[in-house]
Write a protein that binds this DNA or RNA. Structure first.
Lengths: 363, 363
DNA sequence: CTGAAAGCGCTAACAT
DNA sequence: ATGTTAGCGCTTTCAG
């Protein structure tokens, strides 16, 4: 069942059917009705593949994310998916698994022109190969929108968040709670967000006149396992910190796991503030103070920018071409985990975790 | 840059180039080399859209899931994505948001034939419209593979898990811990897994000679909020349960949130065993006993079945056509949350949560 | 306002 | 072993 069948049955040419389908106005109302009537009975659907081949533009966009399992990217995807649904677009999801080669290979295949646009959270801000692939894609008319992670020295559209500011706020909150010995489980040095959150951490300390201690900066690479190790390193220091700022959701979980194993009670024996909220913790005794962000909205907005580029490709107005880059504000949710009895000299006795059944341990 | 350009430059016909590209053997080795040499310099890529239009089969599959944000579906997607990557397929992700109309509309668009196959976790096992759309899709040569949730009275390929058995095991574990008053936060009645987990619950009780109490069966609809309410209803009963079995990850979280608010300590004041593990809890004081499943593998396997169907469409061997339906076994991970001091008469005093700083509450 | 014809890039049947 | 031709389903000049 194709456009010819419809045309024949309606007694018109395929061209006319096409015009009706695409809502062109140069078709007499009576013939339009005639065609529509035929289609109504048939449950005919124009073939998008043929349309694509003929016109050159598809209704599919690609989303590349480093870690499908991370709730952060699920939320981004959710935002993208909802926007796409409303606009009859479909989204191809590619997980790069934090693997540069995989990222490259996927971008390579995208050059064939199957997709109309691309949203990506690149693995690294520094990777030359990814940068050049994205540049080529963009040059070939496939708009690119970055999400969360920027690419160094390049000008791509993108949606980011104000990490430096909110990270600073988070650390400030620890300082306000009375802490002086504050550590950070930092993120990958090759990622902008990792860098920015570290900068925010330093800024907060500087502003409060607290000297930076190199041993309090440990890299957790945004991973759970490495962050667990980072927490271990921190707590085994001769003079361990009384508070930790963790740079993303996985860092928070890794850190928490170590602290839990040590029988330490969050918000009492030690304090923790995280970047990115973790909804599951809402149901537990860990009432985490965390930086929250409009993650879903970041995905939604990225998709919106992409749509705008479809209509106004940069080539058309090369001179007054302006990048579309948005930075969204996050906010701090205080729930108590920033508190600490120890650092306020309110501490009454031995560590609560050591007494069975008293604090975090329940057996 | 298309196949004609290559052909001209290599001094052969487009057909020959096509043959080389598709690794047909009926081409002289010397010409093959000649063509390959030309391509090597050009970074030419065959246009998949044109290939699709010409051959009729695409390299894209669709995955429809009710809830993109749920970690369960992220893991399924991860499995699908990894398999797809290995086989040069791409996957279009559609979130149906537990909205039947949306599910229908998406399936409707899939009829146009953009995708080669379809993996879906249908919202409801009972919905006639979805069932008939899937039947049509399958009949039109687009293989369908179900994941996790079955469709009533239909025969589709699928990957499921042995929910009845593992749910029974989970409840059995509570019984073994000494419980007699065991409630369930059940899942949607319109979903097979919800039904099976309830059946497993009943079976475990029956086997242990414990009478079923209707008031101990409350529906949480697989949602966090509704499960929170369900927990509330249960705990406000004149004779509340001493243990709860929650039917999925969100039920567990909703239930936990209510119990936490009440200052109850899991594994001490009350017991909880959940269906589906929640990795975030590993970092907290809630050491959840839960049914775990090979979720990633379910996605991977679903994709594998789909691939097999590409090669051996059912029409070709109508008579010896066999459904490919796999049921994967889950297992119970015991971590302690099934224990309860109360029901073992080992309980020493007032509820621990009421004493500040003693158990789950830390302030 | 409508239709004929060409073309999007590739593959496949049918020669040779 | 290679080339010619037609065609996948649609859109789009270009004529009329």
């Amino acid at each position: 069942m194709n456009i010819y069948d419809i045309a024949t049955e309606a007694g018109v040419s395929p061209t006319t059917v096409s015009r009706v389908l695409n809502e062109k106005d140069n078709v007499k109302d009576s013939t339009r009705q005639k065609v529509l009537a035929v289609i109504a009975g048939k449950e005919y659907r124009p073939n998008p593949i043929a349309q694509h081949l003929s016109t050159g533009d598809s209704r599919t966009i690609a989303f590349l994310a480093p870690d499908i399992d991370n709730a952060f990217f699920s939320k981004i995807l959710h935002g993208i998916s909802d926007y796409a649904y409303k606009h009859d677009l479909s989204v191809s999801m590619y997980g790069t698994d934090e693997n540069l080669q995989r990222e490259h290979r996927i971008l390579e295949t995208l050059k064939s022109g199957v997709v109309r646009g691309l949203i990506i959270t690149p693995i690294s801000a520094m990777d030359k190969k990814t940068a050049s692939l994205l540049r080529e894609l963009k040059a070939s008319g496939i708009p690119v929108v970055l999400v969360d992670r920027d690419i160094q020295g390049m000008n791509f559209d993108g949606v980011f968040s104000n990490d430096e500011k909110t990270a600073k706020e988070a650390v400030r909150c620890l300082i306000d709670a009375g802490h002086k010995k504050i550590a950070i489980i930092a993120g990958s040095k090759t990622s902008k967000p990792g860098e920015n959150r570290l900068t925010g951490y330093k800024a907060a300390l500087a502003e409060a006149g607290i000297a930076l201690r190199e041993e309090y900066i440990v890299n957790g690479f945004f991973h759970e396992k490495e962050s667990y190790e980072a927490a271990k390193i921190l707590m085994q220091l001769p003079d361990p910190p009384t508070a930790v700022f963790s740079s993303n959701n996985l860092s928070t979980l890794g850190c928490l796991r170590y602290l839990w194993e040590q029988g330490l009670c969050i918000g009492k024996d030690i304090s923790l503030v995280g970047f990115d909220d973790i909804r599951e913790l809402r149901s537990t005794n860990i009432q985490l103070t965390a930086v929250d962000r409009p993650i879903y909205e970041m995905g939604y907005e990225a998709m919106h920018i992409l749509m705008l580029r479809f209509d106004q490709p940069e080539e058309r107005s090369q001179e007054n071409y302006r990048l579309k880059r948005y930075t969204m504000d996050g906010w701090l949710i205080k729930r108590g985990s920033e508190k600490c009895l120890l650092c306020q000299n309110k501490y009454e006795g031995e560590k609560s975790g050591n007494q069975s059944g008293k604090c975090c341990r329940y057996y």
